[in-house]
């Protein structure tokens, strides 16, 4: 018997993180269904690397290994990074990215709870900057691919970069819709022509719009389970929709529709799973709104004017920088102090 309160609720970090993993499952299923089972290999590879790096670092830092390894936070980082990578990325890319995320972005800053930046996004940014070609080489949705790779073929490609005889890289890969959009707009093509290209679906990108829908589903589960609050997803998607909507209304020929922005790229994943990382995000309700709305706007800016096709990762990292400031200026009114 130590000190009050003598009872605690039944929430643990491990359970919170597990529910985040659970909420990712619908998205993963849709992903595997639409883009091939290769993503499962990437996920497994990232998971193993994350756990191994975490254990190694905890050992080097002389911290207890089991309580931290079982908190599931390394797995969340691994899965988020894996889902952000091209599904047929070479094994070493996955390993390098995950290791960087866990070793540098998380453990070197002090481990669970101490990382100022979202580890998965640090891993992603490092890979994107270092290996831009591989990072933007996405497999086409199966529906569009001229050739299909079996699970064994995908395994061979991920680990050995070998394609089955007669299959060219072009047959299975394509530029991402965000990438395509950017190049086409630079070539001064009209939006109506651009979106009629086969990589575009009903609202956004073919295939990934369905995956985005599945992420939305998982995200709603997180809100229902009170793992996250509504503030960040609503403000992020709201910010993105508002600014893209504004420009779409002004000049629809040169700007993609808000729907395309919301369902394309990593917007949904970012809104519900990445920007909601509690450690690197703000804690006050107003702070969350400011933080997430800014990510939404920055994402659009980077997508529209930046050098990279998608901007979620950089937007999140930029806003991570602002978190202490945001928190400091958005303190809620304390009970009994200056009620207006």
């Amino acid at each position: 018997m130590s000190a009050p309160p003598y009872i605690t609720g039944n929430t643990t970090v491990s359970a919170l993180m597990f529910k985040v993993l659970l909420a990712l499952v619908p998205g993963i299923v849709a992903y595997a269904w639409l883009f091939g089972s290769g993503i499962l290999i990437t996920l497994a590879l990232a998971s193993v690397t994350a756990l191994a790096s975490e254990a190694l670092m905890l050992r080097l830092r002389r911290r207890p290994i089991m309580p931290f390894l079982s908190d599931n936070s390394a797995l969340v980082t691994a899965w988020l990074l894996a889902l952000a990578l091209p599904p047929l990325a070479p094994w070493w890319l996955v390993v390098v990215g995950t290791m960087f995320a866990i070793v540098v972005a998380k453990q070197l800053y002090g481990g669970l709870g101490y990382n100022p930046f979202n580890p998965a996004m640090i891993g992603y940014a490092v890979l994107l900057i270092s290996f831009p070609v591989i990072m933007t080489q996405w497999p086409a949705p199966l529906e569009l691919a001229q050739a299909r790779l079996s699970f064994a073929d995908q395994l061979a490609y991920i680990f050995g970069r070998v394609l089955p005889a007669g299959v060219q890289l072009d047959a299975i890969s394509t530029a991402t819709p965000l990438d395509y959009l950017k190049t086409q707009l630079k070539l001064d093509h009209a939006m109506t022509d651009i979106v009629s290209a086969p990589v575009f679906g009903a609202f956004g990108a073919k295939g990934s719009e369905i995956v985005a829908g599945a992420y939305l589903l998982g995200g709603l589960y997180l809100i229902q389970q009170r793992i996250i609050t509504w503030h960040i997803p609503v403000a992020l998607l709201g910010g993105l929709a508002a600014i893209s909507g504004l420009f779409y209304v002004i000049d629809p020929q040169h700007h993609a529709s808000p729907m395309f922005h919301l369902l394309g790229g990593a917007a949904m994943l970012g809104a519900f799973f990445i920007a909601t990382d509690p450690v690197s995000g703000p804690t006050t309700p107003r702070g969350k709104l400011i933080f997430a709305a800014s990510i939404g706007v920055l994402t659009w800016v980077i997508r529209s004017y930046g050098g990279y096709p998608d901007g979620v990762a950089f937007a999140v990292l930029l806003m991570n920088l602002c978190v202490p400031l945001i928190d400091a200026y958005t303190q809620p009114r304390v009970f009994g102090h200056g009620k207006s």
Binding site: V13, L16, P67, D71, L112, G113, P278, V279, G281, T284
Partner: peptide, 9 residues
Amino acid sequence: PVLPCIRCA
């Protein structure tokens, strides 16, 4: 066992 604060608020 006590874990570090994850700022979940």
